[in-house]
């Protein structure tokens, strides 16, 4: 017999299959973060700058990948393959959860790749903290992926809506999280905006954890932010999927 769990596994492995068949797609989808690493990081002052910069780039890579993932669903809505899934006995929540969970896999692959590229340039890896950091990031990227799918379901008759919203939100989220430059010396209003951006807390937690500082308030705040984004994404995503036709 099937259950929500087995249904989710079916959707998860279906989503993952093209990635497994063509692993290079993971690398192509992360060229932008690699550009920032190669062309922006050298501009940062000081010796420890890579240690500060790399965790943010890992979050950025997750933001870019997960926020775009809804476009796959949008395409499948247009071609008819989403309808094909809707007519099977698969439970509606599984159609969303399985897709969102899949986002973890390219995120992990990209994180490993970024770290591997940076170690020769002096990046020091604290494995325990990094693993905990990736766990927190997993929650965040499930949430982002689910929100992206929600946006795709809402844009099924208006493709431009998906890209407009995604592109409009992408850079404010990124810049206000202090991924590229620290916001400590910015004006008050900028810092205030940064404080309501959940990604800020995730980025701070990743920086602490990748540096091996596990028991800090950053870790806790990042965990809370990631869980909140994950829960919110799954909640609205499942509701949107249940209404999908």
């Amino acid at each position: 017999m099937t259950s929500l769990l087995t249904d989710t596994r079916v959707v998860f492995s279906r989503e993952l299959r093209p990635v497994v068949r063509d692993p290079f797609s993971v690398i192509f989808s992360m060229v932008q973060p690699l550009f920032f690493l190669g062309l922006f990081a050298p501009l940062l002052p000081g010796d420890g700058s890579l240690q500060w910069f790399v965790p943010g780039i890992i979050v950025m890579s997750c933001l870019f990948g997960s926020s775009m993932t809804g476009s796959n669903l949008l395409f499948e809505i247009q071609t008819g393959s989403h309808e094909r899934m809707l007519v099977t006995p698969l439970r509606r929540p599984a159609l969303l959860i399985g897709r969102a969970l899949k986002e973890i896999v390219p995120m992990l692959a990209q994180a490993v790749l970024i770290v591997a590229v940076c170690i020769p340039f002096g990046f020091r890896l604290h494995l325990g903290g990094a693993l905990l950091g990736l766990l927190i990031l997993a929650g965040f990227c499930i949430g982002l992926g689910a929100l992206s799918y929600t946006l795709a379901l809402a844009s099924k008759n208006t493709e431009w809506l998906f890209w407009t919203v995604q592109q409009t939100l992408l850079f404010p989220l990124l810049l206000l999280a202090g991924v590229l430059l620290p916001l400590d010396d910015g004006p008050g209003w900028l810092q205030a905006l940064s404080k309501i951006n959940p990604m800020t807390y995730v980025v701070n937690a990743e920086r602490a954890l990748f540096n091996g500082e596990v028991l800090t308030r950053h870790t806790l705040a990042g965990l809370v932010a990631a869980v909140l984004v994950g829960a919110l994404g799954l909640f609205v995503g499942v509701r949107a999927m249940q209404r999908s036709d």
């Binding site: 299959r17 093209p18 071609t79 008819g80 393959s81 309808e83 094909r84």
Partner: peptide, 17 residues
């Protein structure tokens, strides 16, 4: 049910689908 569109995902392989 065989709808008007294509049931198979375009990035998938037929057998996988």
């Amino acid at each position: 049910y065989i709808g008007q569109g294509n049931g198979a995902g375009h990035s998938q392989r037929g057998r996988d689908e």
